[in-house]
């Protein structure tokens, strides 16, 4: 009874938030409703007993894909008045295209037939051994019966990933200064940790003065620029001043 009630609650929220994804004006709200929809789909998986799928749905779609989505959409600078401007002009065109697509979908589903061989080949979704956990059952199916398809899917994704990197990778700019951490760390004189014995018997030391380089003297002002560089000794203690 509770499971049925939960199912209807989650299903209702899922459908409502899916509708809000399409209808809300603000794209950030759309993405947030999309996340809510993913969540409720995960809850439906849980009710169906598919705990592994539920968790993977949350980790992959909510935890990674939707974050990147939100990341991009958040940065859009949207003018809502401009967004609403052409609505009445384009609405009929949009409605016609939508109607055609809807009719096509209807035709496709109306005449959809499974080949009898395919129906027979479909493997019973429940694992043969009821003591197996979800994860084990899925793993056995994926890595024994369908290992080839699994590997091909992985390769396709790899190609897509490499393609995306190749498309966006630019040559190094000649003027850009890049950090090479290994070189920086190997530089001996830049960072030296040495143990300096504290001087005793002088009391509290004052501010250390460093000898500043002589500023370049402008030719017209011969006597200017004498303000710095008086201290020959860089280690005046505070007590001496």
């Amino acid at each position: 009874m509770i499971a049925a009630l939960a199912f209807y609650v989650f299903a209702a929220i899922l459908i409502a938030s899916a509708a809000m994804v399409v209808t809300s004006r603000n794209p950030v709200h759309s993405v947030l409703f999309l996340i809510l929809a993913f969540f409720n789909a995960a809850a439906l998986f849980l009710i169906a007993g598919a705990e592994f799928l539920a968790m993977i749905l949350v980790i992959v779609y909510v935890g990674a894909v939707a974050v990147l989505f939100l990341f991009i959409v958040m940065m859009l600078d949207i003018d809502f008045t401009q967004l609403r401007e052409g609505f009445q002009r384009y609405a009929p065109v949009g409605a016609v295209i939508g109607g055609i697509l809807f009719l096509e979908l209807l035709f496709v589903f109306g005449s959809w037939q499974f080949a009898p061989e395919a129906t027979a080949l479909r493997i019973n979704p429940m694992p043969a051994d009821p003591t197996l956990t979800n994860t084990e059952a899925l793993g056995r199916l994926l890595y024994t019966d369908y290992i080839l398809l699994f590997q091909i899917a992985g390769l396709i994704l790899l190609v897509a990933m490499i393609g995306a990197i190749v498309l966006t990778l630019r040559d190094k700019q000649p003027n850009s200064r890049r950090q090479d951490i290994a070189v920086q760390v190997a530089r001996a004189e830049a960072v030296n940790l040495t143990s300096v014995p504290p001087r005793t018997g002088l009391g509290v030391l004052g501010i250390q003065r460093r000898k500043l380089p002589e500023p370049p003297k402008p030719k017209s002002l011969g006597h200017a620029g004498h303000g710095h560089g008086h201290d020959e000794d860089g280690h005046h203690g505070g007590g001496h001043h």
């Binding site: 968790m55 980790i59 935890g63 979800n134 994860t135």
Partner: peptide, 8 residues
């Protein structure tokens, strides 16, 4: 799937 839950 405790670990997956934590990761999620």
């Amino acid at each position: 799937v405790g670990v997956l839950y934590l990761l999620a």
